[in-house]
């Protein structure tokens, strides 16, 4: 599968991680172009439905990133999100929908461009190791 490049959907919070992506770009930091960024107001805005929808539509990986705990623009959005993601993460693996290495979470502030590029590379490597998505993909409905 040398030609295969993973598609990764990244939900980045407007105030921190998206800013970090911006800064990484301005600073000319390099990371592979496997990531499709979707800007969200807050990591707390990321509904589990979004993550499932990304996988259903064929994403090989999903990455959600927000502000560090305590730094949320909305004070506590990411703290609620943390609990949501903890349960979501374990349940997705439990049901076999997502294999280890496909779903990633991080806290990256808008000043941490280096961390952004590093985590991006890590996410891409992990998804590459997991291989092309195979379980939870909606194709043509299996109907009569």
């Amino acid at each position: 599968m040398s030609e295969w490049e993973p598609k990764i959907v990244a939900f980045l919070c407007n105030w921190c991680s998206y800013g970090a992506a911006d800064l990484a770009g301005v600073s000319r930091l390099q990371y592979p172009a496997n990531i499709r960024i979707i800007r969200v107001p807050c990591s707390g805005r990321v509904n589990p439905k979004f993550i499932l929808a990304a996988f259903r539509s064929g994403a090989d990986g999903v990455w959600v990133s927000g502000c560090h705990p305590g730094d949320c623009h909305y004070i506590e959005g990411n703290l609620y999100a943390r609990r949501k993601f903890a349960l979501l993460n374990s349940q997705l693996e439990y049901t076999g929908i997502v294999e280890p290495g496909r779903l990633h979470f991080s806290w990256i502030s808008s000043a941490e461009a280096t961390k952004f590029a590093e985590v991006a590379r890590g996410v891409i490597d992990a998804v590459k190791a997991a291989g092309p998505a195979r379980h939870f993909i909606k194709k043509q409905a299996e109907v009569a």
Partner: peptide, 21 residues
């Protein structure tokens, strides 16, 4: 539309997963 309405296994699993969640 987050969940397809047919009895396709992906849609059915989406329903059961999100209901439980």
């Amino acid at each position: 539309q987050w969940v397809g309405k047919t009895i396709d296994p992906t849609d059915t699993l989406t329903f059961h997963f999100l209901r439980a969640y």
